[in-house]
């Protein structure tokens, strides 16, 4: 029983990160029909920057806030230089290459800065573990899935009740029509990328105390987060968050009852199977592309 609870709690913590990353992919895809493949690296930017700002003498809270803001700025800049120039051309996939390229550059730069070492980010949430039904977990880890759910609800509120949110939905629905209605499509897309960047960096700041900040910390969550976004249906925010949490828990059970080495094999096999049965993802809406 304790073991099962342990796997569920640990799985939710990992899954919360996948969910937050996937949510970022959802936001970008909805408005731009393109994503930032360097999104995993926004986690690293958030986590590492928080570590460096703290070392530079900023108080922990402020260091984290500035690091999250920097993630948003990264999203904004990346959209402008690596995504927008390619979106004006029909069917161009140049943004795939450029965003991956920027990601590799940022990661290489971080490696040079850290010399490959992971750096700790102190947090009151990892000082000691708490025990729930005999299973141990850090409070920090419990917060992560909660933040993912709150972010999802917040996004929903934003889209329903604010002007910019409604503009995001309009752009997602039909870019040209939205433009004809006087919506500045470019600004909305830029806003989406910045928002996704904020979420990604926040995920990085949240997870860094648990996994340590390092140049490569965003690689795996970035990949898994994208996988989760696809399985969950990239058009559905609740879909990707639920899928993220479930995927994290599923991984822990595979690690616990089969083997750690089998984790990726089973995880990605399930992903392919799911896509064969639900080509739009579990919760995704069918998208009509007019050519």
């Amino acid at each position: 029983m304790t073991t099962v609870v342990q796997y569920i709690l640990s799985g939710l913590a990992i899954g919360g990160i996948y969910a937050l990353v996937a949510l970022g992919f959802h936001i970008m895809w909805s408005s731009a029909k393109a994503v930032n493949f360097a999104h995993g690296d926004t986690l690293m930017i958030g986590g590492l920057l928080a570590v460096y700002l703290l070392a530079a003498g900023l108080p922990l809270g402020l260091a984290c806030l500035v690091a999250v803001a920097a993630g948003g700025l990264f999203g904004l800049v990346l959209e402008r230089i690596a995504v927008r120039p390619f979106l004006s051309q029909q069917g161009s996939v140049g943004w795939m290459l450029t965003t991956i390229a920027v990601g590799i550059m940022v990661e290489s730069f971080a490696t040079i800065q850290t010399q490959g070492y992971a750096r700790p980010l102190p947090s009151p949430g990892v000082v000691s573990s708490v025990h729930i039904l005999g299973a141990g977990i850090y409070p920090q880890e419990l917060v992560i899935p909660l933040v993912a759910v709150v972010a999802m609800l917040g996004l929903r509120a934003l889209q329903r009740h604010t002007l910019v949110g409604r503009a995001m939905r309009a752009v997602a629905h039909n870019k040209n029509a939205a433009a004809l209605m006087g919506i500045n499509v470019n600004a909305v897309v830029a806003f989406s990328f910045a928002l996704a960047g904020l979420l990604g960096a926040a995920a990085g700041v949240l997870v860094a105390p648990v996994v340590q900040a390092s140049a490569a910390m965003g690689v795996l969550p970035g990949l898994k987060g994208f996988a989760v976004a696809i399985i969950g249906g990239i058009t559905s925010a609740p879909g990707v968050v639920i899928t993220g949490l479930v995927y994290g828990v599923m991984e822990k059970f595979v690690e616990g009852y089969i083997s750690t080495a089998a984790r990726e094999i089973i995880g990605f096999s399930l992903m392919i199977l799911t896509l064969l049965v639900f080509p739009q993802g579990l919760f995704g809406k069918r998208e009509v592309m007019k050519v």
Binding site: T3, Q6, Y7, S10, A13, I14, I17, V207, V210, V211, A216, M217, V219, L220, K252, E255, G256, S259, T260, A261, R263, E264
Partner: peptide, 17 residues
């Protein structure tokens, strides 16, 4: 005998076993 991959973020299953 427990194995893990680089960048793994949690080793609870291995530790419990």
């Amino acid at each position: 005998a427990e194995t893990f991959n680089w960048n793994d973020q949690d080793m609870s299953p291995q530790v419990i076993r």
